[in-house]
Amino acid sequence: MQAFTRHIHPGWLIIAPLMLMVIALYLGPILNILWLSVTDPEPGLSNYAKLAESDALIRIVWTTVRICIITTMFSVTLGYSIAYAMVHCHQRQKNYMLTLLLVSFWISILVRTFSWLMLLGRKGLVNGTLENIGLIAEPIAFMRNELGVLIGMVHYMIPYAVLPLLVSMQSLDTRVMDASRNLGASSTQTFWRIYLPLTLPGLVASTLLVFILSLGFYVTPAVLGGGKVLMVAEYISVQLLVTLKWGTAAMLAAIMLTGVLAMLWIMSRFMKLSTVFGGAAR
């Protein structure tokens, strides 16, 4: 026991319960899924070959990537604007803004999806209002297409985009901007050449975080896409729960996982991961 404690810090004893649980009940089956992607239904790379052969599969992957990129662009741009306004106003106003942001962050995803369903449907509130004031004659199709999925996803992702940006903007030394102004730069120049580059780490972290979260998003695309917009997550669930085919689903999961881990690694170069999530938890 003495020799044992000399080599291993006693702190590990209280780390162990959670560690063992995550390894056995989480890491284990994930590795099993990666293994399945090259062994089910037969050993080899046949599952990965499907990615090159099947047009349907390519379309699903492409739809997912495209929607995620558009969602990320909108969420991060709008999030930047919110974070910028929050950092540059009085404490009191900032607190109100933070409250709104966190309340939206906390409202259940199901409640929000349900609300969009009520708002965006053919007879929904948005179409109804537009028709009543005579702006449109025919209802606009907001749902069962990519537009609806994008609205729902951007709405969900904005708070996630804001939080890392806020952390990054708050830690800036404002004297640098003052110096730039004193040296004769206009406020536009100061923003583009000093402020934006200095917030780049936050911008990268926020972009990758939103992109990662969008990749595996299930609820909103499934409901607002109404079966017309098939993304990877929904495809996986159909494969497992309806057609019971693990091979293809495992292959898609393996690719998604590799992508996510690669992005996390890049993200960790720019920002301490716990700060990103720590911001999210507050």
């Binding site: 990749l215 669930s237 996982l257």
Partner: peptide, 27 residues
């Protein structure tokens, strides 16, 4: 090592939920 372990233990929060769902379903 403990910092590595911390990063590892945070993974369930960031790995897409659909993959977590597959993993739990599988086991």
């Amino acid at each position: 090592y403990s910092e590595l372990m911390r990063a590892f233990l945070l993974l369930p929060l960031i790995i897409p939920q659909i993959i977590s769902a597959m993993a739990f379903y599988r086991l």
